[in-house]
């Protein structure tokens, strides 16, 4: 069924993506070389590994390039307002706690327009899986700079380089109270599959910040030669696995993002807390 990373003899069996896709909606609208397709594939493999039925999963998104994902996948899906995916997801999960709710959102959608929803979802620790596709740009509206655009980078709204310090989605999720925080990249796709699988299986708010490339806007504006070049520079050379990071000297970690599971704790989950109060009060009557 699933594709384990290391075992060579099993890797040669290709994964059947079609059972989770809506074939009449493909090919997708993403640009050539866009990392969102790679992340979508990792997400489908991770969902397959969990063994959940298609009807037990709900994929919810806001607005943006990444938020086109629910259109292509054959689960319960919801395409909602800009930045409000987490609010809708909280409602869905609260109404039907048996559903596995996965929120697919972009960096601008989650951290700028929906920043407040992001903080309070993490604070409540409701059982959602939040996948933040971080491509450091607003691709759908023409390549404006976003909250994760690195300082000095070009965008259509920062012609002389961005002067705003970027957000670290993982640090913010951790500080807000999320019980599972991880980071992956589209380049390390098997590692990402494992991380997403772990995030889905975790009870509580799990945030996965996924670094992928936007060759059309971010790439062109910042003089990257191709999608491959972007993947090598930003995702391969720009990140370090958290397990290797301890062994490296601090100067080698400067300016690099850590990959892997960064924070994992056990905390009371929101829906369970609510249910326990309901049961308690029902018994008292």
């Amino acid at each position: 069924m699933s594709v384990p990373a290391e075992k060579k003899e099993k890797v040669s069996v290709p994964f059947d993506y079609n059972k989770y896709l809506r074939p009449n909606k493909l090919p997708h609208i993403w640009c050539p070389g866009c990392g969102h397709g790679i992340v979508l594939k990792a997400m489908l493999r991770a969902i397959d590994k969990t063994g959940f039925d298609k009807n037990d999963i709900c994929v919810i998104s806001g607005i943006g390039c990444s938020s086109r994902t629910p259109g292509y996948v054959d689960f319960n899906t919801l395409h909602t307002l800009h930045g409000r995916a987490l609010s809708f997801a909280t409602g869905v999960k609260f109404a039907n706690p048996k559903l596995k709710v996965i929120v697919v959102t972009g960096d601008g959608d989650a951290l700028a327009i929906g920043g407040n929803h992001f903080i309070h979802t993490c604070r409540r620790n409701i059982d959602l899986t939040v996948l933040v596709f971080t491509n450091a740009t607003y691709g759908m509206t023409g390549g404006q700079y976003s909250p994760t655009t690195p300082m000095g980078s070009q965008a259509t709204t920062s012609r002389y380089g961005s002067i705003e310090p970027p957000f670290d989605a993982c640090e913010m999720a951790k500080a807000s109270g999320a019980s599972f925080v991880a980071r992956g990249t589209a380049y390390h796709t098997l590692e990402l599959e494992k991380t997403i699988h772990e995030a889905i299986m975790h009870k509580g708010t799990s945030v996965v910040d996924i670094i992928d490339a936007c060759p059309t806007y971010f790439g062109r504006a910042n003089k990257f030669k191709s999608a491959t070049h972007m993947m090598e520079v930003i995702e391969k050379d720009g990140t370090v696995n958290v397990k290797q990071a301890d062994k490296l000297p601090p100067e080698k970690l400067e300016g690099k993002f850590l990959r892997g599971v960064l924070h994992k704790i056990e905390k009371p989950e929101y829906c369970e807390q609510y249910e326990s109060i309901v049961m308690e009060k029902a018994k008292a009557k």
């Binding site: 040669s12 896709l21 050539p32 990392g35 397709g37 790679i38 594939k41 796709t189």
Partner: peptide
Amino acid sequence: RCQLCDLRCPDF
């Protein structure tokens, strides 16, 4: 048969 082309193809 390393499957890297399949894994990293964004377009199925």
